[in-house]
Design a protein around this nucleic acid. Structure first.
Lengths: 331, 331
DNA sequence: ACGCAAAATGGAACCGATTCCATATATTTA
DNA sequence: TAAATATATGGAATCGGTTCCATTTTGCGT
């Protein structure tokens, strides 16, 4: 592999001149430029990214920490980040913390990224302790949180108003006149699931239609666990005519299980999801849901970390509010 | 940030000794080791990955090139790769070529990875020209292909027997006694879609039940396009009692559209998918499908690239054959 | 206690870029 | 045309590791 010295020699200039030509920010005469470009082409020169990183103390790599690679939610986040990073010619190193149950395990995965000398890190960490996030923030390179609001780090947290999302779900179901509303939440140790659950329950209470606590089941976004949660609800013998699910995945499973049990959706039970994943529109019946601006949130976070890591001034879009999407799974 | 020199000074040893202690492969006395560890701890030392990469000419980074980040197929591949790489303490740089239509655009994305000096690259490139793959193979670091068999590079291609997958679909539907079988394929410019299509059609012909060409529609895995393909089939007026779809996504959309059109599944039309994604089991009705060992294929490819890039001898698992999974969407 | 092989050690040279500085060349101004 | 200024240039020092080699220390056998 040709080095900058080879180029300099062939072009009959000094390495400094080649370097300046490369970075484009110094004075290089047209003749020199010409000869250098020629030489680079001829040698098929490609600058060595490590030498550059070592010298500039900048890797142009952003680390991305995800709690899982399953499900459209994280997929959309990753997609948005990748797009934004490539736009700025940065690279993306991925860490998937799937299976890392404990806080320490999570931090280890973070360390895995840090070891690579990322210029910044984006984290989607619904269940980590705030104290750990704070100390990570303090001792590491720019760290930005996605789908998590850390009060003390509001400038570095990008989330969606899940509380409002929960309220919107309640409002939509109440408007449709349902009497017995059930709810399967996500894991309540996750901030987002918690918030939307609160919004939902509080809005019902506010409208004097408090939810029956026995109709609230804490689920999770794992297939088996959410199956179990739905089963629990179905076998409880309690009547309900609407079901709000913690996310679309749960809702789709619910749709399937309700119908297998001979229950008509939406005639007997209305089902409402959350997230508005791609599949929601193509479920049978198409799933009503609360749409949230996942990619917008991820882009905003990504631009924030770019600003911090590279002293840029990218404008950071406001993250929009959740919206109710009416489809056939609710009447 | 502390450097190896700082550690050496504090531990009162030479940098060489620290380096050896770090790599663990040289002779370092217990005393020295002790003092060095102590110093590292005290300085919170973390080796600089670029300096190391520069010196060893090895980045410990593997690039992963995906044609898209949507859909479980690529998600599972990424997941399997990430797992395998972390197991060997390598890092993963991601390039998503979504939207890169042309071959050149795809190669540009490959270049984006190469610029980062990956030690090897994994590519999922269903639609790239073989000649380009070959020349890329020749001029770049170890390059391994996933879900694509390149005849001239069989040791570097890891795929699934999609031809057999297609045949299994035909066999299953014929056994169930269907008379008019329809088929919505993926984009036939993609090798895998092509192969399974061929297997399907050939097996039908072999059993003297050749498919009606008008019941074969080339679709794609994009939501809108596959919607259009299904619509085309439904509005053709042609009768059919079974539908084989190019993947589960298409099948799920088909399920939804058929049922919306008042067609009972599986009583009037049986629906068969391909891939066995998570959701398949939770569709309404649960989707029969052909299961393929996605993660196994990805792991195998990943281990191959690790072997090539780092002179390892990891055993490479055989990639299993597709299997028919019977669920409620077929009788 | 002595000699010798083996183990441990320090440090220079190197990896391939960037950047700064002193020098050389070109351009403008009086 | 000379002086003053602006622009271009080469090369050394630097980033933080690894590795090789010459030298010192250690451990062992007699």
């Amino acid at each position: 592999m040709a080095t900058i010295k080879d180029v300099a020699k062939l072009a009959e200039v000094g390495v400094g001149t080649v370097s300046r030509s490369l970075s484009g920010n110094g004075g290089v005469s047209a003749k020199a430029q010409q000869r250098i470009s020629q030489a680079m082409l001829q040698l098929n020169y490609r600058p060595n990214s490590f030498a550059r990183a070592l010298s500039t103390q900048r890797s142009n790599i952003i680390g991305v920490w995800l709690p899982s690679l399953s499900g459209s939610f994280h997929q959309h986040i990753l997609h948005a980040i990748e797009l934004e990073l490539r736009r700025h010619d940065k690279h993306l190193i991925l860490a998937n913390a799937e299976g890392a149950g404990s806080n320490e395990a999570c931090l280890q995965h973070l360390d895995y990224l840090i070891r690579r000398d990322c210029d910044g890190v984006l984290m989607v960490c619904p269940e980590m302790a705030v104290s750990d996030l704070l100390s990570a923030q303090a001792s590491y390179p720019p760290l930005v949180f996605i789908n998590h609001s850390v009060d003390l780090l509001s400038a570095e947290s990008f989330s969606v108003d899940h509380y409002l999302g929960g309220r919107l779900a309640a409002i939509a179901l109440l408007e449709q006149g349902h009497q017995n509303i059930a709810c399967i939440t996500g894991r309540l140790s996750a901030q987002d699931a918690q918030q939307r659950q609160q919004g939902f329950v509080n809005e019902l209470a506010r409208q004097d239609r408090p939810i029956n606590p026995r109709l609230v089941i804490e689920g999770s976004f794992d297939f088996e666990e959410c199956r179990a949660a739905i089963h629990q609800l179905l076998s409880s013998g309690l009547a309900f005519d609407a079901l709000f699910c913690g996310n679309d995945k749960v809702a789709l499973v619910a749709l399937s299980m309700l119908q297998s049990a001979g229950i008509k959706v939406p005639q007997q039970v209305a089902v409402l999801g959350y997230d508005n994943v791609d599949f929601a529109a193509y479920a049978s019946p198409p799933l009503s849901t609360i749409s949230i601006p996942i990619e917008q949130m991820a882009s905003a976070a990504c631009r924030r970390v770019l600003n911090m890591a590279y002293d840029l001034q990218l404008t950071i879009p406001k993250v929009e509010s959740p919206r109710f999407i009416a489809r056939a799974s609710t009447p």
